[in-house]
Each structure stands twice: as C-alpha cells, then as structure tokens.
Nucleic acid binder design. Structure first.
Length: 713
RNA sequence: GGCGAGGUAGCUCAGCUGGUUAGAGCGCAGGAUUCAUAAUCCUGAGGUCGGGAGUUCAAGUCUCCCUCUCGCUACCA
C-alpha cells in the first residue's frame, strides 16, 4: 500500500433512527478502529471521523409515530449511539452530527459551488403533492396498495411485505401519510448531478487508479467485491442523479439559488459531506488545519463502510468531490460484506439482532471479548456469521486459554521466582527455541522472532486483513506458551536456574509487546496489561514503531529489575448457561415481535357494498396449457378454459408451480379484469391465488372435476 | 433473466500475477506435562479445492458450460 504522511479515516455515519447492533460494528466500525489505532501506534498523523446521520424522511416518520419532533428523535439516538460507541472502545477523534450548524453551512457551500460550476442539470418531473399539507411528498410519505403483492400499506419506495422496490406512481390508491388525502401529481424541479458525464474518468480511476494520468492508488489493493460492484455500475451506464428532494427535515438548498424554496439536499450531498464538516469541527477544536486532510496530496482518505454503501462511496461521492474540485479522492474503500446472526440476516424490524447497548450492560467489563469475536468473524471478503456458541468458544479457547493464560503463567512465575522483578540474565545462555523442541536459541534471536511477528501483524493491518492480523496476534502468545512448555522453567528452576532467567525475561518481553500490539484489537486489555506490568499508559505516539526498533536491536522493552504487579485474570470463561440465556432471549424477542407485529394474517380491508362485489365476474376455469415466460423468474403463460372461451393469462406463480404439473388444474379466474400486457403478452384476467404469510402461493379451486366457465358468487 | 460476489478439511476461513507432497484457527483422536483460569505442548486423522469440458510441460489459480448461496436489478392484474 502507498505510504502517506497523513491519514483521514472515516466510518459510515450511522442513521440516528435506532440503536446499534453487532452488524454495524463488524461492518464499518471495528475495522476502521483497528486501522486508526494501529496508525497511531506507528506515529502517523491520523484523524478518525464519524458522526450521526440525522436527516431524511424516516426520522420524521418515526417522530410522528412516537408523537414527538424529529429533533427529539435524533437527539435521543445520537446520544445513545455516541455513548454506545464510547463504551465499546471506538476511538473516534470526533463523533459529530449532521444537524450541527457547521455541517449545514459546509453542505450548502458544496451545493453552491457545484451549482456555480455548472455541474447540475435542472429537470422538472411529476411528483405527488399533498394539497392539504401543501407540500410535495417524499416516497416514504406515500402509502398505498402494493402493485406486486397487494399489501395495503406499502411505502412509495418499497413494500416491506414482499420487499419489492417501488416508485410512488406505481402504488394503487396512493394516500398521503400526512393528511390521509389522495395526493395529486404536480411538477417539481430538481438539480441532477450528471454522473454520465463523469463515467470516463471514474472508470479510469476505479480500474487503473489513475486520474488525469496521475497514479493515485493501486487497484490491486482494493477488494474484489468493491471493484466488481463499481464496474457493474459503470458497465450499466451511469444516469443523472437528483441531488435534491422535496422534504421538510434536512438541509435547505441555499436560498440564493433560484427556485430553492422547500427543497432539501439529498442525503448524498448531506451525509458524506458530514465527514468534511466533522473534520472542520475537530480541526477548529484542536488547532489543526482541516484542509491538510482533505486537500493535500500527502493525505490518504480511507472510507470504511458496509457493502450497501459501495456505489455511493466509490462513485457518487468521488464524483461530487471532483466536481467541486480541490479535494482528494479516497485511496481505498475497504468495504465489508454483511454479518449474519445464528444463520439468519440481522433485522431491526424482526428484532433479530444482538444490540450493542444491551451487550454492554449484560457483559459488563467484557467488551474485548465481543470485539475479538467480531474481528475474528469479520465479513472481509464474504458474508459471515456470529453465533453465541462461537462467541463462547473464541473467548474460552483463545482469549482465556491461550492469551490470558500465557500472561498469567508468566506473571505468576515471575512473582514466585523473582519476587515480581524482571530477571537479569546471561546473554550467552542457550535455551530451547520456541519454534522447535530440539534447536537451540538465544535471548536475542527470540526477540527477533517476536519482531518479525509484530512486523507481519502490521503488514496485515496495512492491507486491511484484520482477521489475519488477529490470528498473528494470538500467534504471539501461542509462541510464548511454546517457549514455556519446551523450557519447563518449573522444572529447570531446580537444576538450571540461569536458563529460567533467560526464558522468563523473554516471556516478559513478549507480554510487554502484547500490551502494545493488542491495542488496536483489544484496547481495554491493552490498558490492563500496561497496568499489570507497571508500564506507563499508551499515548498513541508511535509506541509500536519504537518497540520494533528496540527489538530489532535486541534491546529489552522491560529492563532487568523492573517490578511488575500481581497476577490478574484478563479474561474469564463464559459458562454454557450464559450462552443458553442469550440464545433464548434472541428467540424470545424475535417471537414476541412476530406476535406483536401481528399475526401472520392481514387486516380485513375496507367494507364494500354488494354492488362492488357483484361487479367482479369470477369464473371457474381449467388450465389447458402452461409454459414459462422466457427471461423471467416468476411468470407463467397459461391458457385457461372458461367454458365459452379460452383465455391467455400471465401469472406470477412460476416459483411455486412447474408448468407441466398444472395442466388440468382447476382454478378461479377474475374474468372481467381489464387486460394488461406483461412481457409483451396480453394477460386476459387474473388467477385467484391464496397467499400465506411467507408469500407462498396456492391455487383456489372448486371441487374436483367441477368444470370451467361457471360463475362464483 | 441480466450483473456482481462467493461455493477450498466436521466448523470458520487463507491461498497474490498458474509451478515442489493444498494451508491456518477451532473441533476430533492419541501421547507428554503440571508454572497456569482442568489451562499448555507434541503427534495424527480428515479435502477427487461445487460438477463437467478445454488451454498448458504444469490449474484451486486461466477459458467455456452447468449447478447452488448471497447482493443489486427486471417481470408477479
């Protein structure tokens, strides 16, 4: 990786609309925290930026639901998220928020500059307008019947029942959530960023790391799935993207721009710019120059995100930065994939999650255990999984048995044999090598081996291989265990006391090295180790670099005669009962949500008159022919016999029925529905299907061999 | 259907531009050991690298076809 003088590291801004779960930590936060803590240990200038994303329609809607104001919602969650991050040991230099005035100014300046540079395309389109509330409606403010599954409370952008992505104009019977009225379509003007114009340089930058012929980074350092997704978008052709919205909670389009009234900045001219405004705030508070981080070639910008944010951080935000001019582009965007929980996707709405604030309470003082397991299972290259059993195993087998036990052995032996003082030794004394049971070794060569392990660990972190780095860290204490095991100081103390001095001296140096090297991963343990060894607290001023240079010269980290403290248990085992309780809790809360969210049954629809019903002509029918519609996953083309005539019907049932197996199937057909073309085939009616809560479909049929064409009343 | 990412030991995953008997951690089996939170250490078993074909002196690694998983996207009157 290209070495830079200065690092600007960001983690995706969490949305201030709910608490944090372990998926967040494993995605965009722990990785970044390891990276910056490591950089600090190497003495780099680094600033780590994050904050709450506090705008957008979802927050207004939540406020309405809870009968409060959007400000109250974001205040509540901002405070909660911020405090959770602190407890879990996230080492942000600043945790900012997008409701801060400096952020509004920064975002508006950005908009103004892009506007003046002529980067925008003004476009007018039709959108729903609520005449009673006198405003345009964001997608989320519109509900209606989902055209795909018939769910009556689908949102304008998405149906939460069937997961389809929608646009507001597709909804049947659209209603405004503000007034309950039926909205009308009105013209509105927005500013579009012409991403299509940037396609060429974005491609060159993504694929070759070059901009204007200058090599900015090596694409080989980027993750496969990140490059893949970017290329997929580039190959599909970029479209102009609206940078404004008709919203009431967000950052105003600057009032000096014509037609700006009622317009707010779109989240992508808001949230990522939060990285910049947070840097400004931090710089102002710490006597620094924010421009050195954002506008200097010697500064490396690294965005840590989840895979859902790849396109925005790799294409759209860079496009915004370059359109503005003066800004550096990210040197890497090491996006993680998703973390699953006990075999299923994490889901806030289904309450299938491990909430970090709850963990912090229930596992007080055991933060590093969670950090360890999440890093160990970090979804670096593919989706991965957290299980409570795995959490127990990694804690008990690796942290307790390997890491903490090694430290404990060393401290106990030192206290027992040398009254807690680091023993002096004869450098020519031969001991058994930690790598083999037969070879011989010296004090210095063991320190060099330690040096190499730390060097490896650093290289792994630099190349964003945090899981591997964690394995290397545990390899250090594993090697310490071998050293003790091969040399058996508990026996040798009687026969070869000089050997024991060398072995324990080395072991103590290893523990001292661990107090530094563990810091990026296990910050609380690092602090405990420093205390245990009576070493000064780490100040993040290049301690690891100093350590490495000392080791390479064979200098000890702990001088002979230095007194250490009494043994402590860094980690304790997690009992089965604790794990069982957590699994039970997870299942119970998820089940409770299922029950509260109701029932698998849909609410009964509005009452209709008999006349309404009698308008429908439902007939019995028999399937004569069935074939899959080409290039579709769900559609079958059916020929239905309804007695007097035959109808061609296209139906979305291919996932549940094989075409050959439904020939002769008796069905009910809504025969007087207006015909509609699907995939070029005219569908003359609709087959009635029953659908359960899982979305599974079943035919509704009259009794066997009833025959086609008869009416249903 | 299109695109992207994956499918490597029981489990979780490494394997860069193709090159000696395919690796790690956990789990498992056997042995050694007791300083330590019944912890540690050694040894071992276990993989036709999703399936098939091809390129090559040589393929987990390149090409093509098929298949499964995840994500984005289109179709569900």
């Amino acid at each position: 990786m290209t070495e830079k003088k200065r690092y600007l590291v960001t983690s995706a801004l969490p949305y201030a609309n709910g608490p944090l779960h372990i998926g967040h930590l494993g995605g965009a936060y722990l990785s970044a925290d390891i990276f910056v803590r490591f950089l600090r240990l190497t003495g780099k200038e680094v600033v780590y930026i994050c904050g709450s994303d506090e705008h957008g329609a979802a927050i207004t809607i939540r406020a309405k639901k809870e009968g409060t104001t959007p400000q109250a919602i974001v205040d509540k969650y901002h405070a909660s998220i911020k405090s959770t991050f602190e407890k879990i040991g996230m080492s942000f230099d600043i945790y900012h928020r997008t409701s801060a005035p400096i952020h509004h100014e920064t975002s508006q300046d950005f908009f103004r500059t892009l506007y003046k540079n002529g980067e925008f395309l003004e476009k007018t389109s039709e959108q729903y307008y609520d005449t009673k509330a006198e405003q345009f409606l964001a997608d989320r403010y519109i509900t209606g019947t989902c055209p795909k599954c018939g769910h009556t409370d689908a949102y304008g952008d998405q149906c939460e029942k069937c997961g389809s992505t929608l646009s507001p104009t597709e909804l049947i019977n659209p209603r405004s959530t503000l007034s309950g009225e039926t909205p009308e379509l009105r013209e509105t003007t927005h500013w579009y960023l012409q991403l299509d114009k940037y396609e060429e340089w974005l491609r060159e930058w993504i694929e070759n790391g070059k901009l204007n012929g200058q090599q900015l980074h090596d694409p080989n350092d980027w993750k496969n799935h990140v490059l893949g997704q970017c290329k997929s978008w580039l190959d599909g052709g970029l479209q102009p993207r609206s940078m404004t919205r008709d919203l009431d909670w967000g950052i105003d389009v600057p009032s000096d721009i014509p037609n700006s009234e009622g317009k707010k900045l779109y989240v992508w001219l808001d949230a990522p710019i939060g990285y910049i405004s947070a840097t400004k705030e931090w710089a102002a508070n710490n006597g620094k120059d924010w421009k050195q981080y954002w506008q200097d070639e010697e500064s490396a910008l690294v965005h840590f995100i989840g895979k859902d944010n790849i396109v925005f951080h790799c294409l759209i935000f860079p496009a915004i930065l370059k359109s503005h001019g003066d800004y550096v582009l990210p040197i890497n965007v090491p996006a993680n994939q998703f973390l699953n929980l006990e075999g299923k996707k994490l889901s806030t709405s289904k309450n299938w999650a491990v909430w970090v604030h709850e963990y912090v309470e229930e596992f007080e003082g055991r933060i590093d255990e969670l950090r360890y397991n999440l890093i160990k299972n970090m979804p670096e290259q593919r989706d991965s999984e957290f299980t409570w059993k795995g959490f127990q195993d990694s804690t008990n087998n690796e942290l307790v048995n390997n890491f903490a036990n090694f430290v404990n052995r060393v401290v106990v032996l030192t206290n027992k044999y040398y009254d807690g003082k680091v023993p002096d030794f004869n450098p020519d004394q031969i001991i058994i090598d930690s790598n083999s049971q037969t070879d011989t070794s010296f004090h210095d060569s063991e320190l060099l081996a330690l040096h190499d392990q730390l060097q490896d660990l650093g290289e792994q972190i630099r190349s964003y291989e945090f899981r591997a780095a964690l394995t290397t860290l545990l390899g250090i204490s594993a090697r310490g265990n071998q050293l003790l095991q091969f040399n058996e100081p508990w026996k040798a103390i009687k026969t070869q006391p000089e050997t024991v001095k060398v072995v324990l001296n080395i072991s103590l140096q290893i523990v001292a090295a661990l107090s530094v090297a563990s810091r990026p991963f296990l910050p609380f343990t690092s602090d405990k180790l420093r205390g245990l060894l009576n070493l000064p607290p780490i100040e993040d001023k290049g301690e690891l670099t100093d350590l490495l240079s000392n080791l390479s010269e064979g200098n000890p980290i702990l001088a002979a005669g230095h007194t250490i403290g009494d043994p402590i248990h860094l980690f304790t085992k997690i009992e089965d009962s604790v794990i069982d309780a957590q699994v039970e809790k997870l299942n119970a809360t998820a089940a409770a949500v299922g029950a509260a969210n109701g029932t698998p049954y849909e609410p009964i629809k509005e009452t209709i008159t008999f006349d309404d019903f009698s308008k429908m002509d439902i007939r019995t029918g028999v399937v004569l022919e069935a074939e899959k519609v080409k290039k579709t996953k769900k559609l079958l083309k059916l020929k239905i016999d309804i007695g007097a005539e035959q109808r061609t019907v296209v139906s979305g049932i291919a996932e549940y029925y094989d075409p050959e197996k439904i020939i002769g199937q008796e069905v009910l057909l809504l025969a007087n529905l207006a015909p509609r073309k699907l995939r070029g085939i005219e569908s003359q009616g609709m087959i009635l299907m029953a659908e359960n809560e899982k979305g599974e479909l079943a035919f509704v049929q009259p009794k066997e061999a009833f025959g086609g064409g008869f009416t249903v009343k």
